[in-house]
Every structure is written in structure tokens, then in C-alpha cells.
Simulated assay, not measured.
Amino acid sequence: MIFTDTHTHLYSEAFDEDRDEMMQRALDAGVERFFIPAIDSTYTEAMFALEKNYPDNVFLMTGLHPTHVKENYTDELAHIEALLNERSFYAIGEIGIDLYWDKTFLKQQQDAFRHQIQLAKKYKLPIVIHCRDAFDEVFEVLESEKGTDLFGIFHCFTGTLAQAKQALSYNMKLGIGGVVTFKNGKIDKFLNEIPLSEIVLETDAPYLAPTPYRGKRNESVYLTEVAGKLVDVYQLPLETIVETTTQNSKDVFGV
């Protein structure tokens, strides 16, 4: 079985002291495919270094995280476009809208989100969406951009069944991570109403560690806990969960 972590920040400073050991724990557990979302230009070199050290396992995205959309966001978008002209990536992400901490830059977040969707279409790439306290705002943009050339993953999905179905209507898979193991996570109550063919696994490491590691640093090896929870949710063998979700990731990312 080959597990695929479709969303993990392995270049994070949280792993600077033991990155190789952390990676080996994941590899030993069968987590062999790691898709790496971008945050902003300050992490670009760290992402390239990670790819160089694990060329067979690490697959990079490029993009501007919504919480990093500030006054200089057009410079960041220019950086992304320059990178896309220089080399290939597997997705544009993570992108979207986040109104949890600050609503100051909502207009700029919307503009950056739309611009990056259009870049994804231009380069025929999937998008990976970050949405926090902003389902209506994200769906508004997706509604205006929907089409056969729009596809990707709704990362860290934590919405309702109705919101899940709306996300799927835009050719998005649902990224399911540690939240599905939380007692108050809620999505485990309806997830079996979503076909497994529409699900991919993720950790969002070093954030959102699953039970029983909640509150600690998350690692990609803990993807096994997420998969184990889906065994209960879907009442299917672990092998089926792992094989199907990895195939789903291949369908999205093309690798």
C-alpha cells in the first residue's frame, strides 16, 4: 500500500531539527507521496531544497496562501508567474480565502484567488483551496470560474454536507485530514454520504494532528490515523481506502 499525503508543509521550521527522521518515519509507514503547498516567496528555496533531497517522493505546488496576502500581494503573484515560466509544478496552491484572523485584505484575497485560478487554467494545473470562515466567499469565486478547466482539491474540508456537495460540483476532491478524527469534527457524521472516489488524504503537517496526537506537532506518518478513521466511516478495508485515495490523488495531480 502506498499512502499519499496530498497536503503537507514538510519545509516548515517545525521540522528543522529532525526533518530526515520525520521523513523516514513516514516512508517506513508506507507514506511515499508528499504534495507540498506553497505559502509565499520566503519559502521557495526551502521547498526546492526539500525536492532536491527527496526527488522521488516530493511534488511541489506554487501559490500564495490567503493569510499571506498583504499590501505586496501583486509582487508575490509576479513571483509565482516567474516560477511557472521557469519550471513545472503539480498544482497552484494553497490558495483561497481566510477570514478567521483578519478581514482587512478580503478584496485582495479575492483578487489573488481569482488570479491564481486563472494561472492554473493557463498551465492546465489543479488548484488546492484553503477556506476558513469563508465558504460563501470561496464559492462565489468558484461559481464565476467554474468549467471543465477548473479542478483540484478543497483542502482541509470542514464544512457541512451541503457545502461538500457544492465543492464537488466545481470538480473538487475533498481533502480529509486530522479533523475527521476529532470528537467535535462533525464531518465524520456525513462523510460516508460522499463517494470515496471524491476523497483524498492529507495531514496539513505540522498543523492539525489527528487524535491521539491532537495538540502536538503533526507529521505525515500520522496519515495512517486518518486512513484508519476512514475505515470506520466507510466500513471498507484499509487497503481499499489507501488504494482509492492514492488513485484519486493521481487523477488530480497527474502523477
Rank of each mutant, 00 (worst) to 15 (best):
234 Y>D: 03
200 V>W: 01
233 V>D: 03
234 Y>K: 07
233 V>M: 06
187 I>D: 07
209 A>M: 12
205 A>G: 01
205 A>W: 00
195 P>H: 10
198 E>R: 12
187 I>C: 12
210 P>I: 02
229 K>F: 00
185 G>F: 11
227 A>D: 08
207 Y>T: 01
201 L>W: 03
243 E>Q: 10
244 T>Y: 03
180 V>C: 15
242 V>M: 04
227 A>M: 09
244 T>H: 01
187 I>V: 14
228 G>R: 05
197 S>G: 10
234 Y>C: 07
190 F>P: 08
196 L>S: 03
210 P>M: 08
179 V>S: 08
217 R>Y: 08
216 K>L: 13
204 D>Y: 03
229 K>E: 08
218 N>M: 09
192 N>K: 15
225 E>M: 09
193 E>H: 15
232 D>G: 07
200 V>K: 01
222 Y>M: 11
184 N>R: 14
228 G>E: 10
191 L>K: 04
220 S>F: 05
198 E>H: 13
190 F>W: 14
213 Y>S: 12
197 S>H: 08
215 G>K: 10
236 L>R: 08
227 A>R: 05
230 L>P: 09
226 V>A: 00
235 Q>G: 08
230 L>A: 03
203 T>K: 02
209 A>C: 12
220 S>V: 03
243 E>S: 10
222 Y>K: 02
180 V>G: 12
194 I>N: 06
216 K>N: 14
197 S>K: 12
222 Y>T: 02
205 A>H: 00
228 G>D: 11
211 T>W: 13
203 T>A: 03
198 E>A: 12
182 F>H: 14
213 Y>L: 14
191 L>A: 10
195 P>L: 11
225 E>N: 10
220 S>W: 05
213 Y>W: 15
197 S>W: 05
240 T>F: 01
201 L>V: 06
237 P>Y: 06
217 R>P: 03
228 G>S: 09
180 V>H: 11
197 S>M: 07
205 A>Q: 00
187 I>A: 12
244 T>K: 06
228 G>V: 05
215 G>T: 11
233 V>Y: 01
234 Y>H: 07
183 K>F: 13
180 V>R: 12
200 V>Q: 00
199 I>N: 02
233 V>I: 15
228 G>P: 11
231 V>A: 02
220 S>Y: 04
233 V>Q: 02
192 N>M: 11
217 R>C: 04
230 L>V: 07
233 V>N: 04
217 R>G: 01
205 A>L: 00
184 N>Y: 10
227 A>V: 09
209 A>S: 13
236 L>N: 01
217 R>A: 04
187 I>S: 10
203 T>N: 01
202 E>V: 01
240 T>N: 06
225 E>Y: 12
225 E>P: 08
180 V>Q: 11
230 L>C: 05
218 N>E: 06
236 L>S: 07
181 T>I: 13
215 G>S: 11
238 L>K: 08
223 L>R: 02
194 I>H: 08
236 L>G: 00
225 E>W: 04
215 G>W: 09
222 Y>P: 04
185 G>K: 09
244 T>Q: 05
200 V>C: 04
214 R>W: 10
180 V>Y: 09
244 T>C: 02
223 L>F: 05
208 L>K: 03
198 E>V: 04
230 L>N: 00
239 E>D: 09
182 F>V: 14
216 K>V: 11
227 A>T: 09
222 Y>R: 03
226 V>L: 02
229 K>W: 00
207 Y>F: 10
234 Y>S: 06
193 E>F: 13
218 N>H: 09
182 F>C: 15
240 T>Q: 05
200 V>L: 01
238 L>S: 06
183 K>H: 15
